[in-house]
């Protein structure tokens, strides 16, 4: 069950009751100065836990792209990380414009990024696709003018 209310997310599943690590990271929309810092921190946490390199690689890609999406498009957001013996899970919520057409947003090359974001090398329309490719479970839901919720699960072999 996921309760999503003003960025307060509570996730209860049988698997996540038995977690190895759990933390929540706030992301400020529009601030590119620290964009990517949370993902670097998450990668370091997963390394310290001793997860396999391939799991760390996928989690770092998924976390980075999610972080950049919040910075690029939302007012604020939160990245919740839960590591269980079998999974790395991210519950990511933002307050922002939302995504009117998720199917279109998932297409490689489609982006609503403005010129400034594109000039920095972001907004290539690869982010959501990269996240999906790095995930075993990818569930994106959104409400226009409210925000977007993304659940990502990466299995640990």
């Amino acid at each position: 069950m996921v309760v999503w209310n003003k960025l307060k997310i509570t996730v209860h599943t049988a698997e996540t009751e038995n977690y190895l690590y759990k933390n929540s990271f706030d992301v400020e929309g529009g601030n590119f100065n620290n964009a990517g810092a949370i993902s670097t921190q998450v990668k370091s946490i997963l390394k310290n836990i001793g997860l396999p390199n391939n799991v760390i690689r996928k989690a770092a890609i998924a976390c980075y792209e999610s972080e950049i999406n919040i910075v690029s498009y939302a007012r604020q957001g939160v990245i919740n990380l839960i590591v269980t013996p079998k999974t790395v899970e991210f519950d990511i919520a933002d307050e922002g414009p939302g995504i009117p057409d998720i199917e279109l947003a998932m297409e490689q090359g489609y982006s609503t990024a403005d010129r400034q974001i594109r000039e920095m090398g972001f907004g290539a329309g690869m982010g959501l696709y990269n996240i999906k490719c790095s995930s075993d479970i990818f569930n994106l839901t959104s409400e226009v003018d409210k925000g977007t919720f993304l659940k990502i699960i990466i299995n640990i072999p």
């Binding site: 590119f32 990517g36 993902s39 770092a60 980075y64 920095m120 090398g121």
Partner: peptide
């Protein structure tokens, strides 16, 4: 190897 010069390249290089 890149043409980008802004600070976000450091976050990418650090993460990878």
């Amino acid at each position: 190897i890149t043409r980008q010069v802004h600070q976000n390249i450091v976050a990418v290089a650090s993460l990878k």
